[in-house]
Design a protein around this nucleic acid. Structure first.
Lengths: 212, 212
DNA sequence: TTAAAATTTAATCAAATGATTAAAATATTT
DNA sequence: AAATATTTTAATCATTTGATTAAATTTTAA
């Protein structure tokens, strides 16, 4: 839906050239990754002249950094937004995060693979910027809630990182593994997507079970 | 360990030039991906002259295909080997698979990201070859066991693909997500690895729970 | 309306990359 | 040992890529 709007917007020239480039770059970088993306690909996708990339963003690398930071933000804020809610239980938070990731990844199923493969290539500036995320997380209400629940004996005394791992694993990996699942399941994108939506309803229960 | 041996072997010239290239290519492709890997990187890593890549493998692409097929094989055989055992229970199979993936991914933590990011780039020949894996899976003893267990009421009637998803999610994603987990957990590779090893003992239980 | 600033264009450049080439070196066969 | 085959080497090539350039065009300010 949002993707459709973006295409219409590009055609209607409602966006500035800079915005067109940014949107197109996000699309192409997400799909192909940094190394396999040529500046010509982005220019073509944006419907603009190649030289404008350097005019507006100075270099492919600079453009990529912007896209990467934004993409990291999208990916991590999905979780961080929920972490600081003070009026929801741990289970409600997990549920909120699972829901939010499904919304995000149904729209952008290639985002996790993009993020993780580019992180593998070690962009230090991105990692340092992401350090800001770490502080938000550490001081979040969620961490306090969890520690309290462990004290109360509601959950086993496990590193909270286990909870994060399990929640992200069960939620995100199936999107990443879709090509493999299609092969194994002898099925298509549509079927896998339906299956993911159906399975979503069970993830919170599974994550909570893993804490007990 | 195995990695160390490979380096020693390269130095000692026990391997043929072709083998040196193949090993080096696997290393570099896994780390950087196809697009960001230059033939010069591989030649340098193998300690051979650049032109030998074309002499032995004809093209970068051909070399990559070999590495990709082998890597897919390594990744999927980890599971498929266990699927056809007739003397083990479902739980034992899950346990065997989880163990095997931990052995594989402790040695090669970048393998899943490599596989999934290259699959994203759509190499059709690899996908078709992988179709052979699908047949092995469909006719495996594991599928029969699972269907029988569902009939017996041991597990809920769920697509077996859910089981595969959950098992792979909980086992593989943490390796892929290590860069993120390091940031969130304010910790290092070593600590994460220790955590993964400790957590391994619980995965089978979690997967089984998700079937009930 | 003119001048100045900003944006866009198309051509060109410098460097990098996968690949080729021909000669040298090494290994194998006769 | 000489001839042949195979492997290796270093230089070179053809193409591609990110980036630059100068002119044209459009927009904005005076």
């Amino acid at each position: 839906m949002a993707k459709k709007e973006a295409n219409i917007a590009l055609e209607d020239s409602v966006l500035s050239t800079e915005q067109k480039i940014k949107l197109a770059a996000k699309e192409v970088f997400h799909t192909k990754g940094y190394a396999a993306t040529r500046t010509r690909d982005i220019a073509s996708a944006a419907g603009i002249n190649l030289a404008l990339l350097n005019y507006y963003f100075r270099s492919k690398e600079r453009l990529f950094e912007e896209v990467m930071l934004e993409s990291m933000g999208d990916f991590m804020q999905t979780m961080m937004q929920v972490f600081n809610q003070e009026n929801t239980s741990i289970e409600e938070k997990i549920s909120g995060i699972v829901d939010a990731y499904h919304v995000l990844l149904n729209e952008r199923p290639d985002l996790p693979v993009f993020i993780l493969s580019e992180l593998r290539n070690g962009n230090d500036s991105v990692v340092l910027k992401a350090t800001g995320l770490k502080k938000i997380y550490e001081q979040s209400y969620f961490v306090k809630q969890y520690q309290q629940a462990v004290k109360n004996g509601e959950y086993q005394d496990r590193p909270i990182l286990w909870l994060i791992m399990n929640m992200m694993s069960l939620t995100i990996f199936p999107f990443m593994g879709m090509p493999l699942l299609k092969i194994i399941g002898n099925t298509d994108d549509r079927s896998i997507q339906l299956m993911l939506a159906e399975r979503k309803e069970h993830i919170v229960k599974w994550v909570i079970q893993s804490l007990k």
